[in-house]
C-alpha cells in the first residue's frame, strides 16, 4: 500500500536570500531526477508541495522553478512559523523532506490562446513565477503577458533576477510599492492608473492571482476595471493544511477542499465556498 504521508528526502543545493525575511531553496532529489508527467511537467504551476522535516512539521509551498526542470525544484519561504523558521536555519547540503505535488494548479488548457494578467503580491510570487516560466516555454500558445507585482517596500520584491529574465522574454512587468524609498521610480500601490499600461483583449483574457490581502486592491482597481469577468479570474487560496491530500479536514471551505479541489479556484465560485 502506498503511504500518502511518507515524504522523500531531498537535498538543499542552493539558498538565496530574496529579502530580509524570505529565502529561496533549491531542492534536488537524492540520486536522481524528479518524475515528469506525460506533458513533461514535474508539477503544474499553481500546485503545491509539502516541505519540512520530521520533528518540525510540514508547510504547503508553491514551487517557483520552471515546471519543466526535473533536476531541482525551487521554493521560497518567509520566516513565519516553526517549519519556515527551521528552513531559515539550514545551510546548503542539508536534507529536508518533500511530498507532492498536490492540488489542481492553474487551468493551463483554458488559458491557452489568451492574454494573461498575473497579479501577485509579497511572497505570493512563487506559483506565478512557475506559471510565467511555463508560458515563456510555450510562448506561441499565449497572447500578451503581464505580471503585476506589489510589495510593501523595494527590499521586499523577490526574484529580481528572474524578473529581469522575464522582461527579456517579452513579459511585461509592472512593479508597485506601498512605501517607496527615495530611489523608487516605479508605481505606488495598485491604482486605477495602472490600467493605462495594460493593453489586452479583455474578452479573451485570463487573470491569475496569488498573494495576501492587497490582492483585493489589484482585483478592484485593476482587473475588474480592465473588464476581465470573475469567471476568468483564478485565485490561489491559502488555508491551514496538515495532510495535503484531502483527509484531515483543515483546509475545507464549504464543500471544497483547498488541497484537492484547489488551491486555485475560479473567482466566481469562491463566494459559494463559505468558511
Amino acid at each position: 500500500m502506498n503511504n500518502i504521508y511518507l515524504p522523500q528526502l531531498v537535498k538543499i543545493t542552493k539558498i538565496i536570500e530574496q529579502s530580509p525575511t524570505v529565502k529561496s531553496f533549491r531542492l534536488e532529489k537524492i540520486g536522481g531526477r524528479f518524475e515528469k508527467d506525460k506533458d513533461g511537467l514535474v508539477f503544474k504551476p499553481g500546485q503545491f508541495v509539502m516541505v519540512g522535516q520530521i520533528g518540525y512539521g510540514e508547510s504547503p509551498l508553491g514551487p517557483s522553478s520552471s515546471p519543466y526542470e526535473d533536476k531541482y525544484i525551487e521554493i521560497a519561504a518567509r520566516k513565519a512559523g516553526t517549519v519556515t523558521g527551521y528552513l531559515h536555519s539550514l545551510k546548503e547540503g542539508d536534507k529536508i523532506t518533500l511530498r507532492g505535488p498536490y492540488g489542481n494548479g492553474f487551468p493551463l488548457d483554458f488559458m491557452k490562446g489568451k492574454d494573461i494578467v498575473c497579479a501577485t503580491g509579497g511572497c505570493g510570487i512563487p506559483p506565478i513565477a512557475a506559471l510565467v516560466e511555463y508560458i515563456i516555454k510555450n510562448k506561441e500558445n499565449f497572447g500578451r503577458v503581464y505580471v503585476l507585482y506589489g510589495a510593501k517596500t523595494p527590499d521586499e520584491i523577490l526574484m529580481k533576477d528572474k524578473i529581469e529574465e522575464w522582461k527579456k522574454e517579452g513579459v511585461k512587468i509592472i512593479l508597485t510599492i506601498d512605501k517607496p524609498d527615495k530611489n523608487w521610480k516605479g508605481q505606488v500601490g495598485f491604482v486605477t492608473d495602472l490600467i493605462k499600461e495594460i493593453d489586452i483583449d479583455e474578452a479573451n483574457a485570463v487573470a491569475t492571482m496569488c498573494g495576501p490581502g492587497p490582492m483585493m486592491g489589484a482585483l478592484e482597481k485593476v482587473l475588474r476595471p480592465l473588464g476581465i469577468s470573475d469567471r476568468r479570474i483564478f485565485v490561489s487560496m491559502e488555508r491551514k493544511m496538515q495532510c495535503g491530500v484531502g483527509k484531515c479536514q483543515h483546509c475545507t471551505t464549504g464543500k471544497k477542499y483547498v488541497c484537492l479541489d484547489g488551491p486555485v479556484f475560479n473567482y466566481d465560485e469562491i463566494e459559494k465556498n463559505h468558511d
Binding site: 504521508y5 512539521g57 496538515q242 484531515c248 479536514q249
Partner: peptide, 9 residues
Amino acid sequence: HCFSIEDSV
C-alpha cells in the same frame, strides 16, 4: 476523523 499532524524533537 479530523486530525492534525504534530512533530516533536
